[in-house]
């Protein structure tokens, strides 16, 4: 019993699809930037700004908002996944730090009607 060529092809395709899976779950619509901490959720304006999250989260973390994008610039968590995630800007994008229980994500209005835009 040996691995077959088709196996390799399928595995490669599966790994590629990893990047698109998220899109299955993420709605689109008017976006807002949300900071999630243990204390709950907080909306953050898209204005360019550096936020020191020490008070909010009890951890040495820095959130940067710039040009309509946001990222965790620095964090004291071991794996640094949230920092490595880099910029988040599209609907459903999120930088999550599980050990510190902190997440920054772009929430969009539920888009079950399949709308491309909202006029308001």
């Amino acid at each position: 019993m040996k691995i077959k060529a088709a196996d390799i092809v399928v595995i490669v395709l599966l790994f590629i699809s990893v990047f698109f899976i998220k899109n299955l779950f993420t709605p689109s619509g008017a976006p807002s930037l949300v900071l999630v901490t243990e204390n709950g959720e907080k909306n953050i304006p898209f204005h360019n700004h550096l936020y020191d999250l020490r008070e909010e989260t009890g951890h040495a973390m820095i959130l940067e908002v710039k040009d309509g994008r946001a990222r965790i610039k620095e964090s004291d968590c071991p794996a640094q996944i949230c920092v490595l995630t880099g910029w988040v800007s599209a609907c459903g994008d999120a930088a999550v730090c599980i050990p510190n229980k902190v997440a920054v994500y772009v929430r969009c209005e539920d888009d079950d009607k399949g709308l491309d835009a909202i006029s308001r």
Binding site: K113, G114, L115, D116, A117, I118, S119, R120
Partner: peptide
């Protein structure tokens, strides 16, 4: 291009027109 609800939609998406909701 949607500036706070004032928008222009050009071309098509998947060969159909853009769907826009009025809030």
């Amino acid at each position: 291009v949607n500036a706070g609800g004032d928008l222009y939609a050009f071309g098509k998406k998947n060969k159909s027109r853009w769907r826009v909701g009025i809030r």
